[in-house]
Write a protein that binds this DNA or RNA. Structure first.
Lengths: 101, 101
DNA sequence: CAAACATATCGATATTTCCCGAAATCCAGA
DNA sequence: TCTGGATTTCGGGAAATATCGATATGTTTG
């Protein structure tokens, strides 16, 4: 959990929003996938792409940036990749920020 | 207090450090200015420039970035500009992050 | 007022980030 | 195994950021 890397990841509006959207998937993504949300599987890339209004490649790139610094994690199920928040890491980050600043 | 602006400001190692250094000036800056620290005046640009190891212009620029998003504030005294943390804003930020993420 | 400083602003270049489309990879089903 | 859909990776042009030196501005003092 590198503070600098986290801040770089969050220095982009879409990536900030992704983290916020993933907090309440049923509020921001199609209701069809409700079972996935309830099972805490996460949200698949296509739904996030749709919501973000960016190309699939950019979306995938952004998700990977958030993942590399630990804020979200991926689960591959068949041809889909589901992303969800890493709540532990986010809690750690909050404490780290509190301590550092 | 714009989250995006704050994260942009903090997506640079030197600027992160500036905020940390300013938390304990007597620990990171010349002892000669101890009275200024105790009076909570802040630290002047030349001392920060020295510590950062960057050119005066870059240092001034960085301080201005931190100031524009509210994390620090400036006091002009004669020919010197003293910068110190805006503790209220930093506390607000912590809460905002806690709430948003 | 002129010289000497401290700081800020400007102009320029090097590096990084944004974001896309094309191509590659992976997986499911006919 | 061929086709098609989901995702990732790659290559690149446009935009933003990093960082400097030169210049400008404001301040103090002889």
């Amino acid at each position: 959990m590198e503070l600098l890397m986290v801040f770089k990841a969050l220095s982009n509006e879409t990536r900030i929003n992704m983290l916020i959207w993933l907090k309440q998937p049923h509020l921001h993504f199609p209701a069809e996938e409700l079972e996935d949300y309830d099972a805490n599987l996460g949200v698949c890339v296509s739904d996030i792409t749709q919501k973000a209004g960016l190309s699939p490649s950019t979306t995938s790139d952004y998700l990977s940036i958030l993942q590399k610094c630990g804020l979200i994690e991926a689960t591959r199920v068949g041809q889909w990749t589901y992303y969800k928040r890493n709540e532990g890491a986010i809690k750690t980050l909050n404490k780290l920020i509190q301590k550092a600043f």
